[in-house]
Structures are given as C-alpha cells and as structure tokens.
C-alpha cells in the first residue's frame, strides 16, 4: 500500500501547473486604458528632433501638415533634409547674406516649384510653413528664418508649440 504523502506527491506531479495571470491582466488593463486615453487622432507626421525643445503655449489649434522647417540647436532642416548647420549663433551658409539664409532660400524655391508642395494646404489662400524651433533661440535667429521663407514666397507660418 502506498503511503499517503507519496500519493499526494504523485498527484501533484500529474496535475498541470496553472499560471495565475489575473495580476498580469490587471496591469494590462491599466496600460490599455492609459493608452486608449492618450490615443491621438491628430496628424502625427511631425517628428520632433531630439535636440529640440518646443516652446509651450496655450494655443489649441490642431496641428495640420504643411511644409516643415525645423530649427534645432545645431541644424536647420526643411522636411527631413538638412539645409545648413547652426553654430555659435550663426548659420553656416554658402554666403554671409545679412537678409536671408541663401541655402534655405534655394531649398524653398525648389519646393515652391513643385506642384505637390504648393497644394499642401488647401484651406489657406497662400502656402503655409510649419515652423518648429527650439524655445531658447533668440528672436534674430527666428526672424532670419521667417524672413527667408517670406522672400521665397511663404509669408504665413504655423509655429509648432507644445500644449500647456
């Protein structure tokens, strides 16, 4: 006759081990709810550069896609294309023009000549530029980019900001 403790041990060996996933389910449910709340239907084509901190604002106007000009701490970009470096408070440009950034001007003129970019914002009468810039930049830097864009035919801007 088998001893009772041995019988119990054999029964334990035969039975399938059941993993208790209730606590895991709780975690998953919380994550799911959090993600559902932060799910955004807005146009997320915008890609924030790592070395850029957008200014904060109370604006609630939704982000809409347009031609992207990005001014990070070290670089000026149009869309994903690097236009020129920004070093020691100056743009590293082909020519030192006090009125405009020549490389940006040429790049924007090229874009303007392309029909698909001219039609990006069908709501606006004139083409619009999304301008993303680091909040620590001085106004003369910001204004030089804006002035160049205006000269190239883009006088209207949407400043990308982080909602407060």
């Amino acid at each position: 006759m088998m001893r009772p403790w041995r019988r119990a041990a054999m029964q334990e060996q035969n039975s399938n081990a059941v993993l208790n996933i209730t606590s895991l389910m709780d975690v998953m449910t919380i994550i799911l709810i959090f993600l559902l709340f932060s799910f955004s239907s807005q146009d997320q084509n915008i890609r924030l550069a790592k070395d850029m901190d957008l200014p904060r604002s109370t604006s609630e106007k939704p982000f809409k896609w347009a031609i992207n000009i990005t001014l990070t701490e070290n670089e000026l970009r149009v869309e994903d294309l690097s236009v020129c470096r920004y070093k020691n408070g100056r743009f590293v440009d082909v020519r030192n023009d006090p009125d405009k950034i020549v490389l940006l001007y040429k790049q924007l003129l090229e874009l303007k000549s392309m029909e698909k970019y001219r039609q990006v914002d069908r709501d606006a009468a004139e083409p619009v530029v999304i301008f993303q810039a680091d909040k620590k930049h001085k106004f003369n830097t910001i204004y030089k980019v804006m002035k160049t864009a205006a000269m190239a035919g883009y006088p209207n801007f949407r400043f990308a900001v982080l909602k407060n």
């Binding site: 993600l35 609630e60 400043f159 990308a160 900001v161």
Partner: peptide
C-alpha cells in the same frame, strides 16, 4: 483576452501621443 491585449498594446503604443502639439498662426509683413 491576454492575446488580444498583447496585440492591442503595441498598436496603441505606436499611435500614442506622449506630447500634444498645436500651432499658432503668424505671418510676416509682406
């Protein structure tokens, strides 16, 4: 249900907005 969650969570993580961007319209004199 776990299977469903495991599929849903990566999808939502990809489309989640951890920053909320808005815009301010401005122009330069032309």
């Amino acid at each position: 249900i776990m299977n469903l969650f495991v599929v849903l969570i990566p999808f939502l993580l990809m489309s989640a907005a951890f920053f909320n961007i808005s815009v301010i319209n401005a122009s330069v004199p032309a």
